[in-house]
Each structure stands twice: as C-alpha cells, then as structure tokens.
Design a protein around this nucleic acid. Structure first.
Lengths: 190, 190
DNA sequence: AGCCACAACTAACATATATCAAGTAATTCC
DNA sequence: GGAATTACTTGATATATGTTAGTTGTGGCT
C-alpha cells in the first residue's frame, strides 16, 4: 500500500527508516467507488490525495451549469482542489472517481507540523510543486499555441493511460472542445 | 532598492533584522536597457529575477521562427526561464526588456545553501511557487474555457498595468490570437 | 514640414470549430 | 437477452478566427 508513495517521495529526498514511518503515519487511506465524490463544492478541503489505484477527474460547473474538467489523475498522481487546499478556502471543484479508487490523503495542518519537525518534507513539497508548475506551464503553451489536433495528439502521447481509460467526451471536455469536434479530429488522424 | 523585495518576502514569512541582511546579501542587482536580453536560448540560467522597476517579456521562437510570448513582468513580479532555472537546463526562452529595467537576481546554488542555513526561506519559496501554481491554473482554465473576448477583458482587469504599458500586438500574442482579431474584439467591446 | 517606420484598424475571403439534429454503436441494468 | 441509457459518429449550417492585403494614424528623425 505504501510502497508506491515512498518510492515517489524518496525519488526526491532521502529518508531514514524512522522518517519513512513518520511520513506513513500522517497518511490516511481512503477508498472511493466509481461515480462517488471525493470533494464537492463548499466543503473545506483539508487534504491532498495521492492516487494508489484508480482514476479520478476534477471539474467545476460554470454559471450555465456546464461541466469543465480541469484535471485527471491515475496511479502515482496527486489530486485535490489545490486552490482550496493551499488557500484554506471552500472547495469550488468536484473531484469524482471515474473508477473505484484507493487514495492516500495528507492533511494540511498535519503536514505543516511535519514540516516543522523535519524540514526535508518542506523541500519535497517545494520540489513537487515546482515540477507541477513547470508541467502546467507546458500545458498553457500547448493550449495557446497549438491546433486542437496537435493538442489531442500530445494528450495521447503524454497520458496514454488516461486516453485508454477515460471516455472521449471527457477528453474533449478537458481539451476545451466539443465531442463532435474531437470525433472529427480522430477521423482525420487515423 | 531593497525595500520592495523585503516587503514582498516578509508578507509570507517573518524575518529578523539579521536574516533580512543575509537575504539582501545574496541578491545581485542587474540593470538592463530596453530591447536588451536578460536571457537568451542556450545560456545557463543560474538566476531568477525580482523586478524592482521596469517591464519585460519572456518568449520563445517556434520551428517557423514565430514569437510566442509566455509571460510579462512588471514591478513586484518574478521572471526567468523557470523551466531552465528549476531544472538546471539550458535556456529555451528569450527574456527581453520592454522598458529600461532594474532587477534583483537570486542565484540557484546560493539559494540552496541559504535554504540549508535558514529553512524559513525554503518555506517562502514553496509558498511563492504554490501561489504561482494556483495562478497558472487559473490562466489555463481561462484559456480553455472562455472566449477570446472574455480572456482579453480578464487580461485588462487582471493586469491593467501591462495593458497600459505594452503594445496591443504583444498582448494578442500572449493571448494566442492575431492582432487583427484583437482589433476586432476591441471594436466590438467599446 | 516631410519622410519613414511601425502600430492599429478595416475589409473580403478561407478555414476551423460550434451548434443543431439525426442516426448508429456500445454499455448498463433489469 | 432485450430495453434503456450512454457514447460516438455524421451531416448541414452558423459563427469565430485566420489570412491576406490595403488604409489610416502616430511618433521619431532629418
């Protein structure tokens, strides 16, 4: 259960046996069935979640009630309403399981106290956020400067796992295009 | 000269007089004239820069030689080729002054040693990156889910300073649309 | 003043995506 | 296994943005 996340963390910082145990100690396992919500708008978001197993999506509904998918997550990814989590604000997003999933939650306050005891963890989460920042930056560039066909191709190459496991209309939504348009792009491509 | 950046840092973490002096000690002032480059592709990027005064843009040239603006920066912002800076990779971006500018550079290695002496700074930069991450996330949402007209309006509201100081064709480029299209949108808006 | 370079605007046409409507294929559920 | 639901595809038309080309406006320079 904890093997994956320990590998994930120790790829960035070295941890003694004791530190590993201490880290595991602050994780809370959470299981969630397909179509169930991990987070709903208005809730307080105390945790960010590491995905051990499964597949989830984060989205919000706009004024017109249209769904907008912001993020998918599968094994070895993190998910939450990060804006709410970091800012200690009420959630604006739904986080919903696309498949039955197993998660490890980290509580913000518990994490803060861990930072104070072992500052290496502050380092880990700084590095993790920095990497996420760089990845997001790449997504912006691609969203602004590439055609939808290129972006879909890029999506398939970057997230082959997700492309296989998630229905096309979800992917279209994530890319910000209509399912009909995605269908046409796919037709032109193969 | 250091007043602004100290205010900027101490808004997130508390610093003693000594710590403030130590922080100032690692900053290197850099002045750069309009149309000069702070960073050019291929260079190693050892610093990220706090803008004390002036206005800059970060962009790259694609395979076809087309310019793509990624970021503007004015007073109290940070700029660099962050991907190169964080990853210790050769620069891919140009960072060019749009106006005569005054910057404070922080060297990555010097910063790392500062982290080890005073871990509060690791905290500051984690928070700063986290905030940047959340802001970028907002930009993605707006780039994917809003019309160009809405995005231009949002840009004007979010960065009124930049809208005033930067020519329209730069803003069009940043928004990922053609100057002609921006001109049409402006005509429809007013 | 007059010229030049550059930025912004306008118009006509081309292309891409959205929208609306229908039909087909695949899943889910009893 | 069959009905109902959900996902995907296709076609006709509307809308938005890109493309190309030409015009206007502005500021700097001699």
């Amino acid at each position: 259960m904890y093997k994956e996340i320990l590998k994930h963390v120790t790829s960035k910082i070295e941890l003694t046996e004791d530190e590993q145990l201490e880290f595991i100690g602050i994780l809370s396992e959470q299981r969630i069935a397909k179509r169930q919500f991990l987070i709903e708008p208005g809730q307080t978001v105390d945790c960010e979640y590491y995905v051990v197993k499964g597949c989830l999506k984060a989205y919000y509904l706009d004024e017109g009630g249209n769904k907008h998918i912001i993020q998918f997550a599968v094994e070895d990814w993190w998910i939450s309403d990060f804006e709410a989590f970091f800012g200690n604000l009420p959630a604006q997003l739904y986080v919903e399981a696309i498949e039955d999933s197993v998660l490890l939650g980290i509580n913000r306050d518990t994490l803060e106290t861990l930072y104070k005891r072992i500052s290496k963890f502050e380092r880990f989460f700084r590095i993790k956020t920095t990497n996420a920042f760089v990845a997001l930056r790449g997504r912006i560039l691609s969203s602004l400067q590439k055609s939808n066909k290129e972006r879909y191709l890029e999506f398939c190459q970057t997230y082959p796992e997700i492309e296989k496991r998630v229905p096309n209309y979800h992917i279209a939504n994530y890319l910000g295009i209509k399912p009909e348009s995605l269908s046409r792009l796919r037709k032109e491509m193969f």
